[in-house]
Amino acid sequence: MNERTRLFGWILLLVTLAVVPLFLHSARWIDFLEMTLFVAVLGQGWNILAGYGGQYSFGHALFFGTGAYIQALLQVKFGLSPWVAMWFAVSGGALVGAFVGYLSFRYGLRGSYFALITLAFAEAFLVLSRSLKSITEGGQGVQLPLNQDPEQAIATFQFNFAGPFLSEYGFYYTIFIILLLAYGLTAWMERSRFGAQLVAVRENEDAAKALGINAFKVKMGAICLSAGITATCGVYYVQKFLFIEPGIAFGPGKSVEALFAPIIGGLGTVLGPLLGSLFIHGVGEMTKATIGQALGGRPGVDLILFGIILILVLAFLPRGLVGLLEAIWKRLTGGRNA
């Protein structure tokens, strides 16, 4: 697939995502799209570190939760504006990333050991957020005061009572803009010198070092970027739901959600996490509407299916759906343009 086709495909996809909600006047479907884009951004955060850098984190909730808690606590406890709090939240997430990265990479933890230490840090933060009640309110979580004044909608970053357009689409276009920024950043990274070095470290760290690449520095860059993007998801989550508690913030749920989309969509590609998220959410909705309904709406059906899809993709599609699409495109164009 050549550059021009690729660019055309991207523009088509993004324009579709930008206009489709305007034709949907159902809150349920707009919510569905919001969550799809949310997971696509969460997945891109994970993808930068794992897909491009080869460092598989099993505790990305750590960064999501840090971002979410900082965003919530700075508003509730210090009365900061959400627009100011978010800078602290995103850099706080990146800082936690730098801390975990510094320890892990300085002591040479790779592969499974890196996965375990990220998991351990997420667990430690889960325990801390539950027990340090004077700071985090403990297990009951932090609730943001609801703003009902339409005049203050923008200032409070709350669109629930913001007039006809914003209350319906405000959060959709917020996550859409976050997606544009995160994906633009990833696309830029992929073409940059830093991105090339990161991929070199993934492919063979010792060889990369022998070529004079500072592997430690490159991995540090990747984990900070990855953690920052993931913390942005935490900011978005808090503004949308006006609530955060330890389980949602640091529990294994978000860590797992972050890795499904990029693996299924295609590791180490810009498009992968978005494609993966569209696919799993589409499949999830369909199963809930068909099988789930037929079986009396019991929970678990969609996750059973996601788990099976994950294993099948790992077994048969090492390059995910992106790899599959490229193979189909190649077949259609008879190998020209490949």
Partner: peptide, 28 residues
């Protein structure tokens, strides 16, 4: 064994997938 192609990180992810399937099947 079949799904992991012998790569450590993939094995980790496959066993994670297995645990998600088993846990949610139990929930269901």
């Amino acid at each position: 064994g079949k799904a992991s192609h012998g790569r450590d990180e993939i094995i980790l992810l496959v066993t994670l997938g297995v645990s998600i399937v088993i846990e949610n099947a139990a929930l269901f």
